[in-house]
């Protein structure tokens, strides 16, 4: 009589080291952390840049234009922007690929679920819902790009007028609410992700473990508050929608949150 063999879920293969590294789950988590940092940088600068919305149409439109111009005359227009964009797309793709393959591996690691109710002690809601918050954010990003970058999902889209596009888009209540929901999901995702990054990269020390946690909380809160404020301000009419018809080149006095209302 033979004992049943221990189930293996993966075969160990040798390959060139970057491949072996990425093939390992620890490597994938490292990649997720690095790409996570890139995406966090993006999310933060995106949010900060959008704060210009509160100033005026001109400010934010110039900001959009400036992004295309970086780094001045050293490179042709938009080359730098596209490099960043491609980098972000790559990061996004890797982040998702790693997440999906880890999820599949982890399903295999427990083929039979617990038959009685699990009682989680440490795993936070955020940690347990990473998959779903990730999916929500991912789907929203696709819509967001179609809506505000490509413009295909926005009937009022005017290329080069982000102020108008944004205000027009978010004043649709469904879109505004979707934006809020997606950002809450993003916040939850960031809350666990920002903490997790330190762990996956192995940057830890009992002396600043608490700071790690506060950083994650603070970062997530900052992004959520900043981003959610836009649709709220637009829907509440704090950010004015008064530049209808004003050509892009001309300043529009009643835009932003501080200008006069007409």
């Amino acid at each position: 009589m033979q004992r049943s063999a221990v189930t293996q879920i993966k075969v160990r293969k040798v390959a060139a080291w970057p491949i072996t590294f990425y093939r390992s789950a620890v490597g994938k988590k490292w990649v997720m952390a690095i790409t996570g940092i890139m995406l966090m940088g993006f999310v933060l600068s995106h949010m900060v840049g959008n704060l210009k919305l509160y100033l005026s149409r001109e400010e934010i439109n110039l900001y959009g234009e400036a992004l295309r111009e970086i780094p001045g005359h050293l490179l042709p227009r938009t080359v730098f922007l596209w490099t960043i964009r491609l980098g972000l797309i790559g990061a996004f793709a890797l982040h998702i690929h790693a997440a999906v393959s880890l999820t599949r591996l982890n399903r295999k690691a427990r083929p039979v679920a617990y038959q009685s109710e699990r009682d989680y002690i440490a795993a936070s809601f955020a940690a347990r819902t990473m998959r779903w918050s990730g999916v929500i954010v991912g789907l929203y990003v696709v819509f967001h790009l179609l809506d505000l970058t490509a413009g295909t999902a926005n009937p009022d889209f005017v290329r080069g007028d982000p102020y108008n596009n944004l205000v027009r888009s978010l004043e649709r209540p469904v879109v505004g609410i979707a934006y809020i929901v997606a950002n809450l999901a993003l916040g939850i995702h960031l809350f666990h992700g920002a903490w997790s990054i330190f762990q996956s990269l192995g940057v830890n020390n009992p002396r600043f473990n608490n700071a790690r946690k506060r950083f994650a909380q603070g970062f997530a809160a900052l992004i959520v508050i900043g981003n959610v404020s836009f649709p709220v301000a637009i829907l509440a009419g704090v950010i004015k929608q008064s530049c209808e018809g004003t050509p892009i080149e001309e300043p529009c006095a009643g835009s932003g949150a501080f200008g006069e209302k007409n």
């Binding site: 160990r12 789950a25 620890v26 988590k29 982890n106 690691a109 002690i121 940690a127 996956s200």
Partner: peptide, 21 residues
């Protein structure tokens, strides 16, 4: 050790349930 571990077990996604248990 890490690569042998991964032949049998899932990956850490930082839930911290292990530490609690």
């Amino acid at each position: 050790m890490v690569e042998t571990m991964e032949m049998y077990f899932g990956s850490c996604t930082n839930f911290r349930e292990c530490e609690a248990a």
